[in-house]
Design a protein around this nucleic acid. Structure first.
Length: 123
DNA sequence: CATTTGACATCTT
DNA sequence: TAAGATGCCAAAT
């Protein structure tokens, strides 16, 4: 067993990097939920971690954090008030993502089908 | 070192 | 559809 059990994060100082890596793979015009990002990052079940990672992300970062939304298809941003969320919404609209009257995104249509790496569909 | 809080998800009422 | 409760991990105080 190679030791290390099955714990994915061998990076005590770069766990977030794993999250960023997944977010970077999100194509424009597509969105992914925190839970999905966490799962692709190897932290399945720990959706919160994904959120913290993005929050700790600097603005000048090249990570398209605006493509990451919550499972309700809604934007989640407490800091910066609604301005931050509003800014994110405009950014997504600019990429082709549409919002409904409730301010929610149709995950059914814009959800990014990201796999764990592997062009193979599954298995 | 213990407590609190935080870019969430999922289930239940 | 909305609202409340629970679980998760990490950083801040």
């Amino acid at each position: 067993m190679g030791g290390a059990s099955d714990r994915p994060p061998p990076d005590p100082a770069g766990r977030y990097e794993r999250i960023y890596s997944v977010v970077r793979r999100i194509p424009a015009g597509r969105v992914a939920t925190y839970g999905q990002v966490a799962e692709l990052a190897g932290l399945s079940g720990h959706a919160r971690m994904a959120g913290y990672a993005l929050h700790a992300l600097p603005e000048h970062s090249t990570v398209p954090w605006h493509r990451v939304i919550n499972a309700q298809g809604r934007l989640s941003l407490r800091a910066d008030g609604e301005g931050g969320a509003l800014r994110q919404r405009f950014r997504l609209e600019e990429e082709g993502v549409e919002f409904d009257l409730s301010g929610r995104v149709s995950l059914k249509r814009y959800r990014w089908k990201g796999r764990k790496s592997r062009t193979d569909a599954r298995k």
